[in-house]
Amino acid sequence: MFKDMRVQFCKKGDAIYFSHLDLQRSVQRALRRSGIPYWSTGGFSPHPYCIFAQPLSLGFESQGELFDFRITEGEDFDPEALKRTFPESLKILDIYPAENAFKKITAATYEIELKTGRDAKIIQKAFEGPLTVLKKTKRSEKEVDIRTFIHRMEISGIAGGVKMDCDIATGNEKSLNPTYIEAALNQAGIPCSLTKVTRICFLEDGGKVFR
């Protein structure tokens, strides 16, 4: 049979402009190039099996994206061969056997930089009261309090704005795109704009880093 392998990689530099679809295609081609014994899907257009933990929005950086691929059980492979096929902007950080299912992911740690004229204390205060925004999904549109999606939030001042170090719900059950923070604050009368979003890592229940 086969064994699931997990790849941890970053997305930085010009790779922030690659869409999720671009990324999937690039990873599949990298797998083919690497020559490692990956497991392929059957059917009409056989392709290397690979699934991603969570898509990352266009423009965001990441220090810990994850995808799984399969290798035929019992066959050895050289992880370096796969690492060599990735460009610097999508550098592979680690390859290890996948033990946790992606559905265990409930949150992610983000570093968010906001450009704003208000100082950190005022922003901090905004998070004490309700911060509502109209959240759209494929099926519905509803008014939500973004604070119910934010597990942890530390705000500090930086030049020209603030930096947020936070854990935000991410996963199949409950998820919030960090762009809603910008929208909610603006709606609450705090003019601001996202300048940089970096996903640091995924978390599972209890705030433990998901690997």
Binding site: G13, D14, Y17, S19, D22, A30, L58, G59, P87
Partner: peptide, 14 residues
């Protein structure tokens, strides 16, 4: 990030 398919304006292809 506002234009369509920005990946085509940055190069750096393998």
């Amino acid at each position: 990030l506002k234009v369509q398919k920005p990946a085509r304006y940055v190069g750096g292809e393998i």
